[in-house]
Design a protein around this nucleic acid. Structure first.
Length: 634
RNA sequence: GGUCCCGUAGCUCAGCUGGAUAGAGCAACUGCCUUCUAAGCAGUAGGUCUUUGGUUCGAAUCCAAACGGGAUCACCA
């Protein structure tokens, strides 16, 4: 309707205003709730053009519009705004339209280009944590929204399965795992430990031993004890120590960190990890076996976690496969002059013209860095999926710079799709106690958290006792849906770009603006419709009266397709979450204010049931788009 | 230090492509279950939209600066 009015005004601008009108001067919005009206036109711009008062312009326009559009029932000019009130039949028609569509809000599959969405991208040295949860729920929801909005979507992740971090776990496991009576070291099988947790335990173990070794080294150095063949280290240490003199505290701490790094590089443990990485790269069979085994444990653990989260992927990429990619591209880019080589043979790109720095793309020894790999992987993906138009990378905002550079490089290399690559950059998740730090053990484990929210759901659901007649399996299923629904909604409702505070108590809350509140509304609607089912009648709605509460609900329902498109275009499930909450609030308000089953007027009753049906169906879809189940009882 | 992001009620967040008296939830207080699921609904109270300038009919919204918080600036990933 807004569009129709806007088009009309623009088309008639010459006769009304004596000149043509820019589209953005026509500002239409929903009328404020306290005032009578449905659609509001802002009059100030027109008053300016006509050198007249908003009042008189409004009256004129009101006449013209209501003559043109029979849907307009009445209008009023208030404070420079033209408030149009629509006929009841207009809203009824809208409701009928929504109700008659089986796929309301869903665009035709494949009507928009194919997009790849990457999310999760875990390291295989430790379990998933709260930060991953935000990443994964966000990326998963965006995938569903894009698909609903008409795109074909390929969901993917890059598994960071190689590198020094996993070697640390491997070294620690070989050195420190106790051996049981059968002569075996600890495995998920013989300990009952979840695979990723077990590997994570040894990663921590490595860190612990490393720290104590470093401490010893540092105190030796402080006492002037250096190993015989390490004059160079001694020299560096003394140089750094002297540099601390005359510096402020912050600078001294920075230097201390450098000294610590020096000590770490000299530790035997670190050397072992590095040796293991070299062996791995040389495909030493024993190292490879160990690596495959431990990664296998981690994948089993991840599979369990992903399954509980209710997420899935279409295509996996492993860094061990992709880390050599991109070198050829860099060499090609070197020939075409996109990159340049420094004296030590390292390859760089100069981005100073773009306001950025020079960035390394290939080490002096010819090995790849992260950037090299990402260049290669992106190109490979477009080769794997020839109809791909772009990639969405769901990655934390600490990598903003990296992606800015990556997309720039791809563009400079001449890939036209580079402009369709998007870094879905989300903010960090903070705890009330501050940042999550693995070193300080403040990391919130993904599995533990899911367990906690489900426990709370069990407790609260039992207290309410709405579930008589459900068997145990259905109940367990429902507890999962409620607990996870709450957690997902909690993490998704905040604008992805913003950093957010994770409050453990709030995240398991069931009242207010929460997932379970939305689910509960859905369950009530299902129950209502079930009771109404035996006595449904087909009726026409002409001449029916509409209450404000009813109009509000219909207005919200009308919004849905546009919200889906907007959420897709801005990669923001939060928009959808906010919309859904508004829809549900308006429905609950309506639900509490009117009778439905006991309504005597059949037309009114059927119309209200139709509204409940439509809300239920939109709500179910909206929840689906956020990865949340819509239970029919709870 | 350079670059980027953020600052709205006690707390967590909406609103930001400029529009009417800035909204929710939580926490506090008051009501509403013999009637469709009270995980609900209605209400009270709570604001210098960090500050100062600018742009204009109009600024939480746009611009600039200051203050405060965060991220990033590796031959790490």
């Amino acid at each position: 309707m807004n569009q129709k009015i806007s088009d009309f005004i623009r088309a008639r601008a010459n006769s009304i205003f004596g000149e043509s009108i820019n589209e953005n001067l026509i500002q239409l919005s929903p009328t404020k709730k306290e005032l009578k009206g449905d659609i509001t036109l802002v009059l100030f711009p027109f008053a300016k053009i006509l050198k007249s008062t908003p009042q008189s312009v409004g009256l004129q326009l009101g006449e013209i519009l209501s003559a043109e559009f029979p849907e307009i029932d009445s209008f009023a000019v208030v404070n420079g705004f033209l408030n149009l009130t629509m006929h009841n039949s207009y809203w009824i028609d809208q409701l009928n339209g929504i109700s008659s569509l089986s796929q309301y809000g869903r665009a035709n599959k494949g009507s928009k280009p194919t997009i790849m969405v990457e999310y999760s991208s875990p390291n295989t040295n430790k379990p998933l944590h709260l930060g991953h949860l935000r990443n994964i729920f966000l990326g998963h929801s965006v995938s569903r929204i894009l698909e609903f909005a008409g795109h074909r979507v390929v969901k993917t992740q890059v598994v960071n399965d190689r590198g020094i971090h996993i070697c640390k776990s491997m070294v620690a496991w070989e050195k420190y795992s106790p051996i049981n009576s059968l002569g075996e070291r600890e495995t998920p099988k013989n300990t009952g430990f979840k695979g990723d947790k077990l590997v994570g335990k040894y990663y921590v173990e490595f860190d612990r031993h490393l720290n104590s070794e470093v401490k010893t080294i540092l105190s030796n150095w402080d006492n002037g004890q250096f190993e015989m063949d390490h004059q160079e280290i001694k020299h560096k240490f003394l140089e750094l120590s002297h540099a601390k003199v005359d510096k402020d505290e912050k600078a001294r701490l920075a230097i201390d960190d450098k000294i610590k790094d020096l000590a770490i590089s000299q530790s035997s443990l670190m050397r072992e990890a590095k040796e293991m990485l070299i062996k791995w790269e040389a495909r030493d069979p024993q190292t490879y076996l160990l690596w495959t085994t431990m990664n296998g444990w981690v994948y089993e653990g991840f599979d369990f976690t992903y399954k509980r989260m209710g997420v899935e992927f279409d295509q996996l990429y492993y860094e061990s496969d992709t880390f050599l990619l991109g070198k050829d591209q860099v060499l090609k880019g070197l020939e075409s002059g996109v990159f340049f080589k420094k004296e030590d043979d390292s390859v760089w790109i100069d981005l100073t013209d773009e306001g950025l720095d020079e960035k390394l793309v290939l080490r002096s020894d010819g090995t790849a860095v992260y950037m090299t790999q990402d260049i290669g992987t992106a190109i490979e993906r477009f080769e794997d999926y020839p109809d791909l138009s772009g990639i969405v990378y769901t990655v934390g905002n600490e990598q903003d710079y990296h992606f800015k550079v990556l997309f720039l490089i791809l563009d400079k290399l001449g890939f036209s799709w580079a402009k369709n690559c998007y870094h879905l950059s989300y903010g960090m998740v903070d705890l009330p106690s501050g940042k999550m730090k693995s070193r300080e053990g403040t990391v919130v484990d993904a599995d533990d958290l899911m367990e906690e929210v489900v426990d709370k759901a069990i407790k609260m659901t039992k207290e309410r006792g709405h579930l008589d007649g459900l068997d145990e399996k259905e109940k367990v299923n429902l507890y999962e849906q409620i607990g996870l629904g709450g957690l997902k909604y909690y993490l998704i409702k905040v604008d992805p770009k913003k950093r957010m505070l994770f409050n453990p108590e709030e995240s398991i809350e069931l009242n207010g603006n929460t997932g379970p509140f939305l689910q509960y509304t859905h369950a009530r609607i299902c129950s209502l419709l079930k009771k109404a089912e035996p006595n449904r009648q087909k009726v026409q709605f002409e001449g029916i009266d509409l209450l404000e509460e009813e109009k509000e609900v219909i207005k919200n329902l009308i919004q849905f397709p546009a919200i889906v498109q907007e959420a897709a275009a801005s990669y923001s499930p939060a928009l959808l979450a906010n919309y859904t909450y508004e829809l549900v609030k308006s429905f609950n308000h309506f639900y509490q204010a009117v009778k439905i089953l006991s309504e005597e007027n059949v037309k009114t009753k059927e119309m209200r049931l139709m509204m409940a049906e439509s809300v239920g169906s939109v709500l179910k879809d909206a929840l689906y788009l956020m990865g949340i189940h819509a239970p029919s009882r709870m």
